[in-house]
Nucleic acid binder design. Structure first.
Lengths: 208, 208
DNA sequence: AGCATAAGCGGACTTTACCCCGCTTGTTAT
DNA sequence: ATAACAAGCGGGGTAAAGTCCGCTTATGCT
């Protein structure tokens, strides 16, 4: 077991490390969920079916993920790690090095692409009770935007609110597209238009 | 039966007027739903309980509203009518007469107040599948915003996208508040902060 | 008035998310 | 090692959303 998986010194305040069998089961469930998703689509991924196919009890699924939406959130978080690494240490303008305004614009465009690519899973994650608005990914988006905003001279502005507004404005067109479209022919078109819209909005908002 | 309830000449393209018994049942169900909501809260408003208390079959409830969330959407639309009248013919700056920029700012602030006042129902309406993003109320919000934007000189901008972005930015802080807060002590504070944030965002976005 | 028919109705039935709680197992301190 | 105990597990049980389909009734036409 690598040091990455289990730090020698656990973070203070962290609830408690997961037991080895719990980690194994989580991985097993996530992998099985991906299989089922690829083979049969979102609807057929029921809690019973997942448990049975993973040769585990239903109770275990709930212990690991809390709710059905929790599974999808976990899947997205998994994929998001790569995305986050690009933010933190990838090449500019997404990664550090470019001027903050350029990074902000690049961020939105990358984010739109990411969401559209993972639209099926995101859609499923939304269906559960307030899973997404309070969820990890959205607040990550907000935190990143706020971090960049801080580096841009904006006069006296409530950066927390502005970050919330901008991240909502970023997701908004995407959510609309999700709920309006069942077949995804125009995914590319939507993506381009949303990306351009984001670019314009940031220009408007952040000019001196 | 008044002409308002049943126009003499039905609109072309309208699917078909509801039958008299259907109208009666819809009203009955909506009224009963409001009672139950006031007495027992959102959770106790189940489809079975509603049907039984309204002395109707469950099938009828589904025929009228489609889904559980549909009931809440219907309730909100009911309340929204008053709000809409204020927009269309009330006093400025919300109603017509004031400069469009002022109207836009006033709109957001009134909308925040409306949402916070109806937070319980809105929350319940959100829980159903894509009920809200594609729902009537949100698109009304968007249409109103777009209508006002058209009257403001903004250079070459994609007004459709901008309207989507701004309406999302308007709802965003509110949704966040919904999912983060269970008890509503700070409703007033949230409302003020969101209202101020909206004011600032519009100023930034719409300045020449 | 009488008829044809589409709309509406009811409630049993199915499916599925989520809860519960007694049993098992990994972990840690002695 | 081993004991003590918290964490994890399993799967039967429950409640509630949503579906189905045969029966009833309003409505519009003749």
């Amino acid at each position: 077991m690598s040091p990455v998986d289990r730090p020698v010194l656990p973070l203070v305040g962290a609830p408690r490390a997961e037991r080895a069998d719990a980690v194994r089961n989580r991985r097993q469930l996530l992998a099985t969920a991906r299989e089922m998703l690829a083979e049969q689509g979102v609807d057929k991924l029921t809690m019973d079916a997942l448990a049975e196919r993973a040769c585990l009890g239903k109770g275990t699924v709930y212990r690991r993920f809390g709710t059905r939406a929790g599974i999808f959130v976990a899947l997205i978080e998994d994929d998001e790690q790569i995305f986050q690494e690009r933010l933190l240490s990838g090449p500019p303008p997404l990664g550090p090095g470019a001027p903050p305004l350029d990074r902000l614009i690049a961020y939105g465009q990358a984010r739109v692409a990411f969401m559209i690519e993972h639209r099926e899973i995101v859609r499923a994650a939304i269906d559960g009770r307030q899973a997404v608005p309070a969820g990890t990914e959205m607040s990550l988006s907000r935190m990143h935007i706020r971090m960049l905003l801080r580096q841009i001279p904006l006069g006296a502005a409530d950066l927390d609110i502005l970050a919330i507004q901008l991240s909502a404005a970023l997701e908004g067109p995407f959510l609309l597209y999700l709920s309006a479209t069942d077949i995804a022919d125009d995914a590319l078109h939507t993506q381009e238009r949303a990306a351009r819209g984001w670019h314009d909005l940031i220009q408007r908002t952040c000019r001196p």
